[in-house]
Amino acid sequence: MVIFYIEHENGSLKKNCYETAAYAAALAQQTQSQSVGICLGSVSAESLAALGEYGTNKVLQDTNARFDTEVDAGVLAKAVAAQAQQLNAQYVIIPHSYLGRALAPRVSVRLKAALVPAVVEMPDTEGKFLVKRGVFSGKGFAYCTAHTTVKVLTVAANAFPAIKTGTSVAEVQNFTAETTDTRVKRISVEKLSNKVSLTEADIVVSAGRGLKGPENWGMIEELADVLGAATACSRPVADTHWRPHHEHVGQTGVTVSPNLYIAIGISGAIQHLAGVNSSKVIVVINKDPEAPFFKAADYGVVGDAFEVVPKLITALKAYKAS
């Protein structure tokens, strides 16, 4: 049995949930097993049943609304581990999301299972178990084996496409999870309005010190808007408070792997590249043809960002309109 954790928010499934479901389904198929989603909280039975399109066989749901705002991974881990034991699960699949990073280690300890975090491919389950993950902040990959029968894997964001494999409907069954006291309480949530989440974004528009000052970010925001992209920045830009900390990407910031990463006025220091070079396609806009970033780019524009970016916005708007 392969079980996976269903992350949701305000009643909707999160993007990572589809990736995790697809991963679990592919693993179940590969090991001639079933994939079962565990959902704690209020999500409509229809949206859970629709996970069948991604290959999910069954969803076990505890509709208790207390789970909707539960941020104590200890409480969630207890419920997930209990289900894993009951179902005799061999694999537990969890997104490598903010919540997943707190949940997975707790589940693995409870199950005495090895945890391989942030995997980027399907494992080899034929011979010795072997799975690929990113290490050295994007400067390498490691193939890992695990010495326990039960294995917990977290799936890196944007690494495994959420592919619809059919039109099946997953069976949704209720269960009642054992609950424990919450020791971490949510006081408030601040959503960045209308913003695409940086870690999950398909497209990231990022800018560096070449922009000269925070007042010049209007065109970056506009470019991101046109593309439906998240915004990011280099470390000195966040350190000097031109942009918020959570936008800092790189080895000591957020690691991203979108389909498209557009770097504007960023030199391409090794620590910056480390956090972004698993992006599928990289576009670099820099006025210095010798900027190291061009060596790590697929497409490059040698030019002044203040001239190039507005032209790119115009071209994109024309393309979107056509």
């Binding site: 999160k14 941020v71 999301s97 006081i187 408030s188 601040e190 695409v196």
Partner: peptide
């Protein structure tokens, strides 16, 4: 958190 921030106690 994804796309935002939360305060916890």
């Amino acid at each position: 958190i994804e796309g935002g921030e939360e305060t916890v106690e």
